[in-house]
Amino acid sequence: MNIFRFLGDMSHILSFVILLLKITQGKSAAGISLRTQELYMIVFCSRYLDLFWNFSSLYNSFLKVVFIACSSAIVYIIRFKSPQKDTWNPELDNFPIQYLIGPCAVAGLLINQDWTPFEMIWAFSIYLEAVAILPQLFLLQKQGEVENLTSHYVAALGAYRGLYLMNWVYRYFTEDDYLQRIVWFAGTVQTGLYIDFFYHYYQSKRGGLSRPVKLP
């Protein structure tokens, strides 16, 4: 464990806290992409199948359960619970996620670590996580302006994987047997997708006053 990875996990947890607060206190899922939340639920449920046999630390196992529970709760609330379910707009949030899941599944089959069924599923989840934010970014693009809490949610989510990039660099130079090309590649793509958002987020938050984040 290193500070980058720890801060990355804290940023990830923060993103869950912000989103759960927003949809439970704010009683609205407006501006939130259910498609992205469904993809994250698939990512965590597939990647953390090893919860039952790969016990690397209590910290890891605890957070795996937390991430599966939170992502599932978010999907449940937005899809089934009133009044949130009425604030979800399927016309706006209509990114064809099958075009993300399909290629990631093929990539997981072809490019993975050990050619075992779990490793194929694990690689699939890594590739899918890299592109899972796309429906959310498309939704924000359509709306043009980003609601304040939503902007903090997306920023925390982007920061989590950006901090993981630093964690991988740190581990590469401090551990002589560390190699994880799949997550290095996917994590770089994932963080890259946020660069445009981070630019507009920074512009809107600069100088302290919280002007709304505007995406062109």
């Binding site: 990875r5 996990d9 990830h12 090893d50 790969n54 690397s56 630390s57 890891n60 957070l63 795996k64 991430f67 670590q113 050990d114 694990w122 993981y164 964690n167 002589d176 047997d177 560390y178 190699l179 994880q180 090309r181 799949i182 997550v183």
Partner: peptide
């Protein structure tokens, strides 16, 4: 030599 280790990250 570097080798892919078992998944110890989230």
């Amino acid at each position: 030599t570097r080798k892919p280790e078992k998944h110890d990250e989230l």
